[in-house]
Each structure stands twice: as structure tokens, then as C-alpha cells.
Design a protein around this nucleic acid. Sequence first.
DNA 1: TTTTTCCCGTACGGTACCGTACGGTCATGG
DNA 2: CCATGACCGTACGGTACCGTACGGGAAAAA
Lengths: 201, 201
Amino acid sequence: MADEKTRRRLSAQDWARAALEAIGEGGLAAVAVEPIAARLGATKGSFYWHFGNRDALVAASLDLWEREHTEAVVERAEAEPDARAKLRRLFTDVTVGTTRTAGNRIEVALLATASHPLVAPAMARITERRIAYVTRLYEELGVPAERARRQALLAFTTWLGHTQLVHATPDVLPDDDTSGYLDFVLDEVVTPEGLGGAAAP
Amino acid sequence: MADEKTRRRLSAQDWARAALEAIGEGGLAAVAVEPIAARLGATKGSFYWHFGNRDALVAASLDLWEREHTEAVVERAEAEPDARAKLRRLFTDVTVGTTRTAGNRIEVALLATASHPLVAPAMARITERRIAYVTRLYEELGVPAERARRQALLAFTTWLGHTQLVHATPDVLPDDDTSGYLDFVLDEVVTPEGLGGAAAP
DNA sequence: TTTTTCCCGTACGGTACCGTACGGTCATGG
DNA sequence: CCATGACCGTACGGTACCGTACGGGAAAAA
């Protein structure tokens, strides 16, 4: 339909953001110049002015993802008082908070294309950064370094699997995420074995 | 090159198997008639005799996957004496055994396309079947039903995440899977909380 | 052997996309 | 006011794939 006077010029960022949305909806293969152009109300003529080719658009959208989808959650966790609370907050936000959001679908889509030459390095950076953060939290809880790393790995793995499960077969999960399941998982995963179950006040 | 006299007639099964291989290598989108025909040394003329269209091939390959990739692991687990050993065996086989195999890549690829109308039902059936089996094992260990289900869900989630991690960013994992990490995870996941760490003899 | 059925190759039209060429427009600043 | 450069549309060729039409050969039946 007529966009009235909304038809402004487009920036490379606009294209990158649209491409990221496309990834969330149809995977990396959905980053196609002509369909995205149509959605933006533009044509390829615009695109090929801002980018050299399709790969450049993919790279730009991955950059965008790497910058925007890594900070927010960590910042909210850091707002908590101690490491234990940060861990719980982190895990809670990231499991119930991101359930079925756009960010979640992007994660799943990119995971599926992890072997793609442009995706692999970005994925490796983000994953290592995330695991390193959780490792540090466990260390702050007094867990020795190697064990903290393992614990973080397991926690991250659990989140990965949960994300995947929610996306692929949500029916197998308990009906409401507000049930005891989340607490159950938190107790199993977040709690380092050495520490008692009762958290700090 | 010349296939000498290997050029026999093809069956629908041959096509389905080739399609499944294609899924493992390039995802569902790699199920393309002409490339697969080329790999089989045939043409589309053959394909459209056995199948009505591309979707029928996808459905056939999913059927094949559902039949072949669900039984083997369970059978090996069932060979163990008690439920506890079965669980350990199951988890061990499925994490170190399937690392980077064809089956693993198919799982990841299909997971990525879980929302596809043909994939979704197959995925839902297999997932539910697997979780139900693990749930039964926990129940045999004396865990009450609802708790067994949660425990199985968590174990399955951990496996899912591990599979994903191995596929996407193997560098973050410990160098050798024969390290203590596997034992660490097994202790954390397989062991129901109510039961002691020392298993039954 | 002849005939029928099965199986496959060739050739074609249609679609969706990438990338290029080039011309047109519109906002500036000189 | 008009020229320059940023920005975009149109038109084109090329590729990869889906699906159809049809003919021909090989195997099985008669």
C-alpha cells in the first residue's frame, strides 16, 4: 500500500536490520536482496549502492546481531547484588524472557548455519564471550577455575538445549513456564555442587 | 566418471536416502531434485516417476530418518543390566558416539527447520518418544512420575545443547572428550537428586 | 518373439534470485 | 540558479531450480 510520505532514503543500517529480521523469519537463506528490497519499499538499485553484494549484507547483519544481542542481558544480570543472584537472573531472563522472541529465532537460525564462513567466526566470538562471563560468575562464587569453566559450559549447554526445545517442540515442555520446572532446572544447573542450596539473602 | 556397470535402476528408497544425506550436508534446502539426480547419476525423469514432487521426497526422507535413527541407540542402552547403567550408556553413546557423525548433522539440520510443516510432526514424534523413554528409566530408578519427567526433560535438553555446541562451536569444549568433562556432566545430569552417587552393583 | 509395462532421458517453459549497466531524481553548496 | 554527487529505479543477462511432456529402451509377461 502507499507509504504516504514514509518513503525516506535508506541507510546501510536499514538494510542490515531488515536482513537480520529476515534471518529470524527464514534463516540465512532468507537474506535475499530482492525480497528485502520489496519489504523496504525499494529496489535492488538502492541495495547495490550501499553494498557490494549479498555477502556484504550478511556480514553487516551479523555485525549488528553481535553488537545488539550480547549486552542487554548481561547488563540486567550485572544489576543484581551478588554472583548467585546474577546467575539466577541471567538464566531466568534468558529462558523465560526470550522464549519465542525475535532474538531467539535469530539464535536458532544462525546456529543452524554455524558452518557458514561468515557465521562461524561471529558465533564463536559470542559463544566464548558468554561462557567466559558465566565462568567468571561461578568463580566469584568460589568455584575453582577449571570446575567453574565446566559448570559454565554445562549451564550454557542447558540454555542452548532449552532454546532449541522451545523452538522445535514446545509441546513437550510443561504448559506454563511459571511452573516449578524453571526452579527445578535452576536448582540443578545454577547451584554449584560445593555450595549449599540455600542462597545468600 | 563412468560408473562401469553400476548403473542400475533406482528405487524410491534410493532417492530418499540420498535426500537424507543431502539434508545432513546442506540442510532441508539441499533437498533439490536436480543436484540429487546428478549425484545419483540419473535425471529428473527418473525422479518424477517415483515421486510426485519435491515435497514427497522430503516426506520420504523424513520417514526414513524417523525409522532408522531412533532404534539403534535405545537397543544398545537396553542391553545394559539396570536402569542406571542404561542411562549412563544412553547418554555416553549419544554424546561422544554421535559427535560429528552424519546422524548428528541431520539432527541439527532438521532442528533448524523444525517449523517446516513436514518436519514439525516427525520432530515432535521423535522427541516425545525419546523423552518418554528417559522418563521411564528414571521411574525405574524410583523417581516419582512428575519428577522423572522433569529430570528426563533436563537430560534431553542437555543432550540437545551439547549436540548444538559440538556442531556450532566445538572449540569451546575441552580438547578431548575423554577428559573428565563427560563424567562431570553425567554426574550432574544422570544422577537423580534423591539417589546416592554410588550406583547399584 | 511380440507385446506390455516399467523406468528413464531429453527438451521445454516458468520462477526466483544475483549482479551489472545506466539513466533519472533530488538535495545540497557554490 | 545550476551543477555535483548521493541515492535510487528500470532493464537486462545469467544461473539454478521446479515441474511437465513425451519419446525410447530395457525387462517382464504373453
